[in-house]
Write a protein that binds this DNA or RNA. Structure first.
Lengths: 147, 147
DNA sequence: CTCTCTGCAAAGCATTTGCACATTG
DNA sequence: CAATGTGCAAATGCTTTGCAGAGAG
């Protein structure tokens, strides 16, 4: 991630570029992926010892909203369970959290191929498609407008 | 889910079929998908008032292990964050929780098509492929062995 | 100056766990 | 009976939030 680019990105929004945020961007940039909030905190504290976890979470949330970070673990607040009738995937409204079952023909083959390519065994997959359902899409404002 | 079938399924394992478990299976069977643990608890308590949430979670975990329930929200215990360089997906070892970035060519088109078919807007998708990495697959025992 | 951000510490929530007792096979 | 399951309640771990002071533009 190019911090100056993001810099510009932030400036186009109501968000301010603070030194904490810059440090968090640098931490994300600093190699390795799949960082936990805790790891990011450690990195950030190397240069800015006083930073708190709350700030890390708040900032990551903004960056996600701006599409600058990808989060692994798109979860409803609580897990959902259902009997396995037939393998299916999920379409999730990011607005109202409505969850719809969908089929994704051919997906399993793709996933198997990828898993096998990496020498994984017991391969399975789950696809989550996110978006805005008809109701929320109608009412709401488009994704990238600044409020 | 056919409770008698599961019954048989459970009997083939070290797990016992208790009345709590039977009730949970019935709750899962009882219509509606994407049930939260809390919802399942409510349903179960209609016939077995004394059941606790702990039992629900313990049972759901067994059922997941046996492949009888599908869980939405396959999360590492903590979320993972990474800078968005290029859209990619994840290959997760269910054993050691190692996470690998993978490309899934063509997937986005599939997801877009599905989303559009359901009249969703701002469609995006994320695929998680699970399995056992070479190291864990070698050491470990196969998925469906009892014990 | 005003509005946004931050640190801190407490709260929130879903989930897990230890333990003594109850149940299953 | 021996092994497994259960309820209860406390603990855990990640994440969110209220607040009062600090900082950005």
């Amino acid at each position: 991630m190019d911090v100056r680019g993001v810099d510009a990105g932030l400036l186009q929004t109501r968000y301010r570029l603070t030194k904490q945020r810059a440090a968090i961007l640098r931490a994300l940039d600093g190699g390795g992926s799949h960082l936990s909030a805790e790891t990011i905190l450690e990195r950030v504290r190397e240069e800015l010892p006083g930073v708190s976890l709350g700030t890390i979470y708040r900032t990551l949330d903004i960056l996600r909203e701006l599409g600058l970070v990808q989060v692994f673990s798109y979860a409803a607040s609580a897990a959902r369970f259902e009997a396995v009738i037939e393998k299916h995937h999920h379409l999730l409204c990011v607005e109202c959290r409505q969850l719809v079952n969908v089929a994704a023909p051919g997906l399993n083959e793709i996933a198997q191929a990828i898993g096998t390519m990496h020498h994984f065994g017991d391969v399975d997959c789950s696809l989550t498609i996110t978006g805005r359902c008809p109701a929320c899409f109608g009412n709401g404002k488009p994704k990238s407008s600044n409020n």
